[in-house]
């Protein structure tokens, strides 16, 4: 394709091709400092005109690649960076078969990993982003990769996707050069991507042993409750995109995770109290 770029994110290498220059340039700026992926990539993503003439006239970006959703809506070129991110997510959700993929954020301390999972809007991205600036190593804000053989967690520290209110929270905390452009009017409202810090990038190849699973929920009075293994298992099967297609290997990996670490659900009214609750539960789990 006319414009292209390769990216290494944790154990996964992407090749992204685009009919337009601007999404590739935006990606290159956002992912400055990531390691060189080498010659062979795991997945190919393509940003193409939805129809041939939509390259020039009201440019419309169709997300294509090795694995696609046939009915994915095309996006405006102004949101080309988001289209590239969605294209990479799609490859992971549909094509990742080397790890059990959990829709979860994760952070690491002392070689042990904290997994944060919940529905969209539960605040896992924001919490992980904040923890990543406050003494933890960010492993990823979107996907956690559980090893099928060793049960350890691999980092997938792509750019953090901050939405709406979370954008201002992080803008107060982090230097401006780590942010991508602010994208208004996306299907999920305003989005701004943030590059993880140097520590997260340097250690991206280091796995961690899962030690605690949390199910955060934003917008409620502060409360924490333990969650039984059966419920944790069920919720994590729902949070996994490839649990079914991995068959027995996925089951073994997930039961290993559930049996090996405690879990709790936390409700929180604001991010600062959530951070306190996380630190306290982490200390109890240690």
């Amino acid at each position: 394709m006319k414009h292209s770029l390769s990216l290494q994110i944790g154990p996964v290498a992407f090749r992204i091709g685009s009919a337009w220059r601007s999404p590739i340039e935006a990606l290159a700026r956002l992912y400055a400092g990531y390691p060189d992926p080498g010659r062979v990539c795991d997945f190919t993503v393509r940003l193409e005109p939805e129809k041939p003439w939509r390259r020039w006239i009201r440019p419309s970006v169709a997300i294509q690649g090795d694995y696609i959703l046939p009915d994915a809506a095309p996006m405006s070129l102004a949101h080309g960076l988001l289209a590239a991110e969605m294209g990479m997510n799609l490859q992971m959700a549909l094509g990742q078969k080397s790890h059990l993929l959990l829709h979860a954020a994760s952070v690491e301390k002392d070689g042990r990993a904290l997994i944060l999972t919940g529905e969209s809007g539960a605040g896992k991205s924001t919490l992980a982003a904040l923890l990543g600036e406050r003494g933890w190593r960010l492993m990823g804000d979107e996907f956690a990769l559980l090893g099928l053989e060793d049960g350890r967690l691999r980092a997938f520290p792509r750019a953090i996707s901050l939405k709406n209110g979370a954008i201002t929270v992080m803008e107060r905390e982090v230097a401006p050069q780590r942010f991508g452009p602010r994208l208004d009017g996306t299907p999920k409202g305003a989005i701004r991507h943030m590059r993880p810090n140097e520590r997260a990038l340097e250690a991206m190849a280091e796995p961690a042993q899962p030690a605690l699973v949390l199910f955060p929920r934003f917008g409620e009075a502060a409360a924490a409750r333990g969650v039984g293994q059966a419920e944790v298992f069920m919720r994590l099967t729902q949070a996994s995109t490839n649990y079914v297609s991995l068959g027995a290997a996925g089951f073994e990996a997930l039961t290993g995770l559930v049996g090996g670490c405690p879990a709790a659900a936390i409700d929180y009214p604001d991010t600062e109290s959530a951070i306190d609750m996380v630190e306290q539960l982490w200390a109890e789990a240690a």
């Binding site: 080498g38 062979v40 795991d42 078969k97 080397s98 297609s245 068959g247 290997a249």
Partner: peptide, 21 residues
């Protein structure tokens, strides 16, 4: 095969075996 290619092919074989089941 190069290490990365072998990993991709290994995952494809595992995926095929599961699809067969």
């Amino acid at each position: 095969l190069p290490e990365k290619v072998e990993a991709i092919m290994e995952a494809a074989r595992r995926d095929s075996a599961q699809a067969r089941i």
